[in-house]
């Protein structure tokens, strides 16, 4: 019961934050609210038993991405111009997308249903396998690094891509000074 109550309060705050982001024109406030949104969702992830995800969301969403966004608005602009465009087309796009999703929920297994296909197929094998094959208590770690380790390699490659992408856009690759001297820029 308490859990439901916490969930409802969290949801209310999440929706309010998101709506505030729509309305507010001060980019500083928008960025801060986006950090708040991440923290709130981290809390929600904890109530949904996803502690690893909560940890990451807090570190990334509320930490790194807020810092980067603050850095960006310091380098660009701090207010948003009032939009003069009519909101009809985006509104229709959003309503249609949402309607398709709601239609999709109609045949979904209920929330927390222990007999949902996702809980019956594959997942139990990970729970057993983590003890038997890998001997690691944190099942998330054993899936992340071993069963689906290749996804994580891809993820590392994505981070790497973003890193060198930012270098390509903003600064270029730096090399050790003495090598630089032979380099003709």
């Amino acid at each position: 019961m308490i859990e439901t109550l916490i969930n409802i309060v969290l949801f209310a705050m999440l929706v309010l934050t998101a709506l505030a982001v729509v309305r507010i024109n001060q980019l500083f406030a928008v960025v801060m609210l986006s950090g708040v949104f991440s923290l709130l969702s981290a809390l929600l992830f904890v109530t949904l038993d996803a502690v690893d995800v909560a940890f990451t969301e807090a570190a990334v969403g509320a930490g790194i991405s807020t810092v980067l966004m603050l850095g960006t608005i310091a380098l660009t602009a701090r207010t948003q111009k009032k939009s003069t465009r009519s909101g009809m087309v985006p509104f229709i796009v959003v309503v249609v997308t949402g309607a398709v999703l709601v239609y999709g929920t109609l045949d979904m297994p209920g929330f927390g249903d222990p007999n949902a296909p996702a809980s019956l197929h594959v997942a139990p094998e990970y729970m057993i396998g983590s003890i038997k094959d890998i001997d690691v208590p944190n099942v998330v770690t054993s899936i992340l690094a071993s069963y689906r380790g290749y996804d994580t390699l891809g993820e590392t490659a994505v981070v790497f891509t973003a890193g060198i992408g930012v270098l390509a856009l903003l600064s270029g690759l730096t090399r050790r000074r003495r090598e630089d001297e032979e380099e003709d820029v």
């Binding site: 980067l68 850095g71 770690t141 994580t152 993820e155 790497f160 973003a162 930012v166 903003l170």
Partner: peptide, 22 residues
Amino acid sequence: VELGVGVTVTGVMVAIYYAFAN
């Protein structure tokens, strides 16, 4: 592999910070 992830992520985040701050 976790070490690999850690090294790259440290590097990338610091590199991005340097690039932005410069």
